[in-house]
Each structure stands twice: as C-alpha cells, then as structure tokens.
C-alpha cells in the first residue's frame, strides 16, 4: 500500500465569524482523480484554496508529498514551506488568471525562470512541449487577449504543469467558459488524468466526474456529505442530500 500524497486532517476555515469548513479529513492517493461537487457556498473552492494556502486554514494539518505544514504558523520558515507546497501543487483557476502582458509562451516559462531558476532555453523547450501537448503550439506568441476562453484555460494548465507539480488543483476550470469551449479543456484534463496525474477537481462537469474520477465527493455546508466511486455515487447514493443535489443537476 502506497502512502497518500495528500493528507488533510481536521481542516477548519473561518472567515471572521463565518465557519466555512467544519473540520474535514481527506486522503488522496497518487494518480487518483478526486472530484468535489456541491452547491455554491458549500466551501469547495475554499477547501481547494486552503490546500496551497491561498487561503490560510484556521485549524488542522495539511501534508502534501511529505511536506507537512502546521497551520497558523508565521515567519520565514513557514513561508518557505508554503512555497514548497505551492510548487508541488499546480493550480488552475476559474478565471484563468493568465498574465495579460505576456504571450502564451512567456506565461508558461515565467515561473520556471523566476522560481526554479531554469535557464531560458531549457524552460522554452519544456514550454514548447507543454503547449503542443495542450494543442496550442501555434499560439505561442499570442497575447491572452487574442485567445478564446478555452485556449486561455489550456495555456493556464500548461503554465501550471511547467512547474512539474505532483498534484493539480482545478478550481471550477470550465465555469467561465462558453458551452462549446468546455470540451477542449475537459479533453486536456482527461488526458492529464490518463497520464497519471493526481488531480483534485472542483467542478460542475458531471460527465467528467462520472467518466474520469476515481472518487466523487459531495461537499455542502462546509463538510463532506458523501464520498464514493462515481458508479455508486451517481447511481445509488446513500444520502438523501446527495439525491436532492443530483436531482437538481442531472
């Protein structure tokens, strides 16, 4: 039995007096694809953003690829650990968040150059491969404003992969896309899953959850409602809350 690559224990998150995440635990195995679904305001995105400390968790522990961080620490050591975790966990945002003043290529090589201190030829060669992998080598010199939403999101995935992360966090990657552009992004995510990437995906794409996920989690009101393989989750959910949710979206 291999070790889980993500270990979350007793994670709490408060926004002021608002208790957003009520102490959840999660183990994710290497190469496992976990999809989190759930109603808006249920804490899915917050949970994801806590994993790489874009939101500072209020309590609990997070361990990613043997790097463990105690929450509510401060200081240089703590910040260094956070950066280590962030390099292990690539993130893809709902709004893409490409750097608008850089071309697709520059977006992809930026972090390898500044963070990993790679030399430019090496970074460029790697970025070429990644862009071609997401099917955008012909757009390498375009600025994000000249790309469609689907293309931007694919560049964003390439940008995250350029840091050679151990896991990938997807925060509603298709929610800001026009319906006909969703497919091209989902297709890239599927290929990524097939290549053995550990993925934690917050999404409303039920097809992706059903076809690609190893495990589906329903999150509502800051906690897990139900967790299980997609076959069981979608066809014979145990919880009433899950049935209600599935009735709404299917």
């Amino acid at each position: 039995m291999t070790e889980p690559i993500i270990k979350v224990r007793g994670l709490h998150k408060y926004f002021g007096p608002l208790h957003v995440i009520h102490g959840v635990d999660l183990d994710v195995m290497p190469a496992e694809v976990v999809v989190i679904v759930g109603p808006s305001g249920g804490g899915k995105s917050t949970f994801l953003r806590c994993l790489n400390f874009l939101e500072e968790p209020s309590a609990g522990t997070i361990e990613i690829d043997h790097v463990e961080i105690g929450v509510r620490d401060t200081g240089a050591k703590h910040r260094q650990l956070i950066r280590e975790i962030r390099q292990k966990a690539g993130m893809v945002f709902q709004q893409f968040n490409l750097f608008p003043h850089m071309t697709a290529m520059e977006n992809v090589i930026e972090a390898p150059l500044t963070v990993k201190k790679l030399d430019r030829p090496a970074a460029t060669a790697k970025a070429e491969k990644l862009l071609s992998w997401v099917g955008l080598s012909h757009k390498r010199d375009e600025y994000p404003s000249r790309l469609s939403g689907g293309q931007q999101q694919r560049v964003a995935i390439a940008r995250a992969l350029a840091m050679e992360p151990k896991i990938m966090l997807f925060d509603e990657p298709t929610s800001a896309l026009d319906p006909e552009l969703i497919g091209e992004v989902v297709e890239v995510m599927e290929r990524l899953a097939h290549e053995g990437m550990t993925m934690l995906v917050v999404t409303h794409e039920i097809h992706f959850a059903r076809d690609v996920a190893d495990r589906v989690i329903l999150m509502a009101d800051g906690g897990w409602v139900e967790m299980g393989p997609p076959g069981q989750f979608f066809t014979e959910p145990k919880e009433e809350r899950t049935r209600q949710f599935l009735a709404h979206i299917l």
Binding site: N52, R86, G90, F93, N97, L98, P100, E110, A111
Partner: peptide, 30 residues
C-alpha cells in the same frame, strides 16, 4: 491589478517580491 494575478503568481510559487516585479509592476506601469 486584480487579486487573481497575485493568486496565479503565488500559486506558481513566486514570492511576493517576484510577483510584484514581474507581474504587478509591468501591468501597473501601463
């Protein structure tokens, strides 16, 4: 310069200084 730009840079492991110099400042200058 939007919060998303900071987050994207941070998520890539960039420090606050790198984020400011490489991502925020060039856009702010414009």
């Amino acid at each position: 310069i939007g919060k998303g730009q900071h987050e994207a840079a941070h998520a890539l492991g960039m420090t606050r200084g790198q984020t400011f110099r490489r991502i925020v400042l060039p856009q702010a200058f414009r």
